[in-house]
Design a protein around this nucleic acid. Structure first.
Lengths: 341, 341
DNA sequence: TTTATTTTTGTGATCGATCCCAATAAATCT
DNA sequence: AGATTTATTGGGATCGATCACAAAAATAAA
């Protein structure tokens, strides 16, 4: 392991003072071109890199942002990466980097994770959840700004950004209504086998959006057309069949998840029904692998994970100093049009 | 934004010296219990947190490990999170945290990412790829240890950990052979529409493993049973049909990807064939959403993303100082038994 | 050429911890 | 009680940068 050079070593080798080296480092204008070159050459030669910690101490600028990800232990949604990516790219543009800590949903770990971030003097913290849910932050309000992504504090004490579930439900339903579907089945999120509750915000928000779209198009809402799944594939399959065996079966089905849509496809195809001619299907989540893996490709609703990560960081950076009223922001869930409608 | 307290402030308020506060902080035994309590109380009261940067400067211990993720721009595999998780959890256990930089496959960005990490004096760097592939590191060898995960340096200059594709192909085929299948179709990775090549290591390794298993069971290998997909769903669908329309059709199909398996399921079901009774199917990747979303649930091969992340960090920590001969490690791709075989 | 200006460079203090060693306090032994 | 030991505590130096100010060098003006 070769020696690590300091600004002092560089100064010595270049025959100048530390101050001058520092000036070159921060390309301060008051340094003669010949000197600058000389210093730069030495740096290059010994592969010098300034110490961020030393800089940080003196300048109080860590250029670091913490990203804590609460991943519900059950399943780590593949979408989580998108949120991380969104946040990271936003930071990258302003020359900052990201400290990532994945804390399961274990409050003890979260506490420690938080401390690790604060000790590093992160400029802010994005606390993201794998599922859209209300959370209780397991620590007191600190003087480091926090933004919640894909979750929100029950008491609305912190700014947050979440998907607009209502809009999602509305958009999904509208896509179908615009194709003249009048009877639309809806397989919504329910209680999973393991007993864990679905995100209420998602379940209720989407249903409300669904109803709103129906009303807008003058189509009556009928209770028998909405079902709740426990997320088991077999259930999704069965619920689809049940819907299709109704006296007056739907001509379109809105599935609360792309995974549900998979089961739905299976059921419809096993009944010899054609998608989208006999029955149209709309999913929710836009999981790449499912959406374009199904035949016909699935029309679905996009959950704005990337955008939430991005938004969270941008908000953080803008409101670093002035503690304004915490915003509860919602991001649209746009339609991804493919071939199932 | 409230004042940030330093060790000096604490010392003053507690009526002791900086040295004593430092001792309390590092729970050094030589501190009288009453003093310790007094100091701890003050810390608690003002919500003091030591500065990692200051500590780092003095102790030369950053407790930081960099994680660079090359995500091929085309698609960000959902698996990437698992690698990050594996690495992070391994670090967490030894009290270190992770700096994550996602660098696309842009070498300019990678260079900068690397510098950001080095300036922060990370103890080591894990450089992970979303796809199993050979890479050329866009920077010179530095004195910070590096481990490659899910990729390897063309010149084997760095230690790396990758999935054992051969074992994967072998395991997948063996699962079928053990159920007495003698004619096994294989839809392997081919050239994608966009012209991008599939990872050669995966394609060839799996084929080799496949052949090896056949040989072991005394089943002749037949060229007509292996096909290459361009990853389009329609192609996967068609290739499956082609295989089934062979004079002597296979009784089982090994798909190079769970996504391919989806298309395969679609084709088989549209032909009225039952899985696994008429035709057994094995996938590859173990993408949660697909595997258990399909009916019957898909038997598949697990790509060890989590394990690679973990392995990389552990290797890094063990071989921090002594630069041993770089290991090229392979991790098994175990079978995930479900209901399609 | 001398003096006044403007550029460029050098230095000591500083950021917030740790560490070592000397000083003080407390405890133990004659 | 006085001398020794041992347990605590205090304070200067240090890590590697930046910064403000003074000093020196280079230019311009008189």
């Amino acid at each position: 392991m070769s020696k690590r050079f300091t600004i002092h070593d560089i100064a010595e080798r270049a025959g100048v003072s530390r101050g001058t080296v520092s000036r070159v480092l921060n390309n301060h204008p008051a340094v003669k071109e010949t000197t600058r070159r000389k210093v730069l050459d030495v740096m290059e030669q010994v592969n010098y890199r300034p110490s961020f910690s030393a800089r940080h101490m003196r300048t109080d600028n860590s250029n670091l942002v913490g990203f804590g990800l609460i991943s519900h232990d059950v399943i780590t949604s593949p979408h989580a990466v998108d949120m991380i990516r969104g946040a990271q790219e936003a930071l990258w543009n302003i020359g900052k980097v990201m400290l990532v800590i994945n804390s399961a949903s274990n409050s003890d770990m979260t506490q420690t994770a938080f401390e690790a971030m604060l000790e590093r003097r992160v400029e802010g913290i994005v606390y993201g959840s794998v599922f859209h849910q209300p959370i209780d932050l397991p620590f007191d309000s600190v003087d480091t700004p926090i933004v919640l992504a894909n979750c929100y504090a029950r008491n609305r004490e912190y700014p947050s950004v979440v998907p607009d579930e209502f809009a999602g439900g509305y958009n999904a339903t509208k896509v179908l209504l615009e194709k003249d579907h009048k009877r639309i089945g809806f397989i919504n999120l329910g209680i999973s086998r393991s007993g864990s509750l679905p995100p209420q915000d998602a379940t209720k928000g989407r249903l409300a959006g669904h109803k709103h779209a129906l009303k807008e198009f003058g189509v009556p809402f009928e209770e028998e057309l909405v079902r709740y799944t426990d997320f088991e594939t077999q259930t999704n399959f069965n619920l689809t069949k049940e819907l299709m065996q109704l006296g007056n079966p739907p001509t379109a089905i809105f599935c609360g998840t792309d995974r549900i849509a998979m089961g739905c496809y299976g059921a419809l195809q096993s009944m010899g029904l054609n998608i989208p001619n006999d029955v149209a299907v709309v999913g929710f989540d836009n999981q790449q692998d499912i959406g374009i893996g199904l035949l016909p490709n699935l029309t679905t609703i996009q959950l704005p994970h990337y955008e939430m990560g991005r938004w969270a960081v941008e908000y953080l950076m803008e409101n670093k100093d002035n503690a304004v009223e915490p915003v509860q922001h919602k991001l649209d869930c746009p339609v991804v049009r493919r071939d199932s409608v």
